[in-house]
């Protein structure tokens, strides 16, 4: 017998002894367990404060409740049917969509304008950037109170200005024609800081070589804005629009402080309506049903945006 045969045999034996499939399976299991361990904090937090409330809300929306929020009678979809038939809710939906329509495009356009201005390399531009983004640091409550004074019918700054020009005072927050616009203006002002900052960040990440190359090619300022800045900024714009729409649908604080849903329910936006239904009328069932509708609306809007918008967005 030569030496090579036994060694070859033992090698084959060795190979057959190793069960590759089983070892791989073991390794996969191990790495899965490790991954789960890393995810655990998020899963626990999301579970307690997001998933559980979500399912509880869906559950509640099929019931009538008592004042403590305990379920009393199962009514199936009756909550939803009543809700859509209710003129108050219809008004609330209309106001919400109008509010989104007023605030989102205006915020984005103004913020974009300011960001393009603040992106110029000028002396003291840091001061303007700070000013433009400063509303980010102001709480909803503080901003609302500030605007409450601005809108005050007799001592408010706006009506004082109108007085100078000889125009009659406007009941900004009490006139049904003006209330939603007034709240929208407040919201635009409040959201401007955040939107501006994100857009400015987006502008600054655009490679300066592109502009230099365009300068050599003889492109005008607006040509550069149209052909370079806006397309290169599109991912940021997309993000900003999505976030602003979601925020607009969830507006609550300024309504609570400025108008409390009035006058004649014109500013009764959906989140405020949910709040009133649950904590003023103690109708947790209907409140839950409205929450679910809001959830679905935001979900659909976001999905729609991704479907429509993403095609026009240029990621690098």
């Amino acid at each position: 017998m030569s030496m090579s045969n036994p060694t070859l045999e033992s090698l084959e034996n060795e190979i057959s002894e190793i069960n590759f499939e089983q070892i791989k399976k073991k390794q996969r299991l191990k790495s899965f367990a490790k991954g789960m361990l890393f995810l655990l904090p998020s899963i626990v937090l999301f579970g307690a404060f997001l998933f559980y409330p979500l399912f509880k809300t869906i559950y509640l929306s099929f019931f009538l409740t008592n004042a403590q929020g305990e379920t009393t009678v199962f009514v199936g979809l009756q909550n939803y049917i009543d809700m859509f038939a209710s003129p108050v809710f219809q008004q609330s939906m209309k106001s919400t969509f109008l509010f989104v329509l007023y605030t989102v495009p205006t915020t984005v356009v103004i913020a974009l304008f300011l960001a393009v201005l603040a992106n110029e390399k000028l002396k003291g531009i840091g001061l303007f950037r700070t000013i433009f983004s400063s509303t980010m640091g102001i709480s909803v409550a503080a901003a609302s109170v500030f605007w409450l004074y601005m809108f005050h019918p007799s001592i408010g700054f706006l009506n004082k200005m109108l007085e100078i020009f000889g125009i009659d005072a406007i009941g900004w927050l009490t006139d049904p024609k003006w209330a939603l616009l007034a709240v929208s203006a407040t919201t635009i002002w409040m959201n401007l800081g955040f939107t501006f900052l994100i857009l400015l960040g987006g502008l600054q990440s655009i490679d300066s070589y592109l502009y230099e190359s365009a300068d050599i090619d003889g492109a005008s300022y607006f040509y550069k804005l149209r052909r370079i800045t806006i397309p290169m900024l599109s991912p940021t714009l997309f993000f900003v629009i999505t976030v602003t729409i979601i925020n607009a649908f969830q507006t609550f604080g300024q309504i609570d402080i400025l108008t409390q849903g009035g006058p004649q329910n014109t500013t009764n936006l959906i989140v405020y309506s949910i709040y009133r239904e649950a904590f003023a009328n103690y109708q947790f069932g209907t409140a839950s049903a409205q929450s679910i509708v809001l959830f679905i609306i935001i979900l659909v809007m976001t999905v729609l945006q991704f479907k429509l918008g993403e095609r026009k967005v240029h990621y690098q």
């Binding site: 070589y209 230099e212 190359s213 052909r227 370079i228 397309p231 290169m232 599109s234």
Partner: peptide, 12 residues
């Protein structure tokens, strides 16, 4: 001018 990183417009 030709730039070091070419300065091509990525979206065009």
């Amino acid at each position: 001018m030709v730039f070091q990183n070419y300065a091509l417009y990525p979206h065009l």
